[in-house]
């Protein structure tokens, strides 16, 4: 069973529905003490880095998520969920993140005429061959909506980048922890394929 971490942000049903469509069982998990029972975990998120971290702290999730990551079971952060996996985010005055992947989260500063937030469909430059991207051609577009982007300290963690008036990191993988800046659950068939890949992923670590 795949657990979707429900720590009080918006619309998580779409992630669960997308796993349904992909043919994998997933459910929302709103009790941090039950995290351990899931074989895989998805950390979703919309909104601001700082307020999401406050929610994670208030709910006792920070320790639980770090403990889960240490079990080496697969974890996937989506959009803000990916950003929360890093050490630090500068949004709204800044806040410490979960520290699962070394690096920071900074504001997008694309060259003109690109506009922030980065909203809409954009494609990935695959930085490595990886089972998470299997069956996904580099020309295929995914749905992005964000104003900040992750800067991993270790370039080896970069799974894919994206061109948007310059290049930013669109997906990362560090051991059993992966993150995607785009929304696979909103990216129709290509996104469903990525969720399938995650559901089958056996991290080598």
């Amino acid at each position: 069973m795949i657990g979707i971490v429900d720590y009080g942000v918006g619309n998580l049903a779409s992630v669960r529905n997308a796993f349904d469509r992909a043919g994998y069982e997933a459910e929302l998990c709103s009790r941090q003490e039950e995290l351990g029972q899931y074989e895989r975990l998805v950390l979703p998120g919309v909104g601001s880095f700082r307020s999401a971290m406050e929610l994670l702290e208030q709910g006792g999730w920070v320790h639980a998520l770090k403990t889960y990551a240490a079990t080496k079971k697969p974890m996937l952060g989506i959009c803000l969920g990916m950003q929360l996996m890093f050490d630090y985010g500068e949004e709204h005055g800044g806040a410490a993140g979960l520290g699962l992947i070394p690096g920071t989260v900074v504001h997008l500063e694309p060259a003109a005429p690109n506009k922030v937030p980065h909203v809409g469909w954009n494609s990935l430059n695959h930085a490595m061959r990886h089972s998470l991207l299997e069956g996904v051609k580099p020309v295929v577009d995914f749905y992005f909506v964000h104003s900040y982007h992750c800067v991993p300290k270790n370039p080896e963690h970069i799974l894919a980048t994206c061109d948007f008036g310059g290049e930013f990191v669109a997906a990362v993988v560090a051991g059993n922890v992966a993150g995607m800046q785009f929304h696979p659950e909103k990216s129709q068939p290509a996104g469903i394929r990525i969720l399938e890949n995650f559901a089958e992923w056996e991290p080598q670590c």
């Binding site: 619309n11 049903a13 529905n17 909103k186 469903i192």
Partner: peptide
């Protein structure tokens, strides 16, 4: 939201944060 995996926007008569939350919980992005 259960049938299509694409971004959904919704509006009309929104007056409060509660109105927004209701739409987001229904599946609007």
């Amino acid at each position: 939201a259960t049938e299509c995996f694409m971004p959904l926007a919704a509006g009309g008569g929104i007056e409060s944060i509660d109105d927004v939350r209701e739409l987001l919980l229904a599946g609007a992005d």
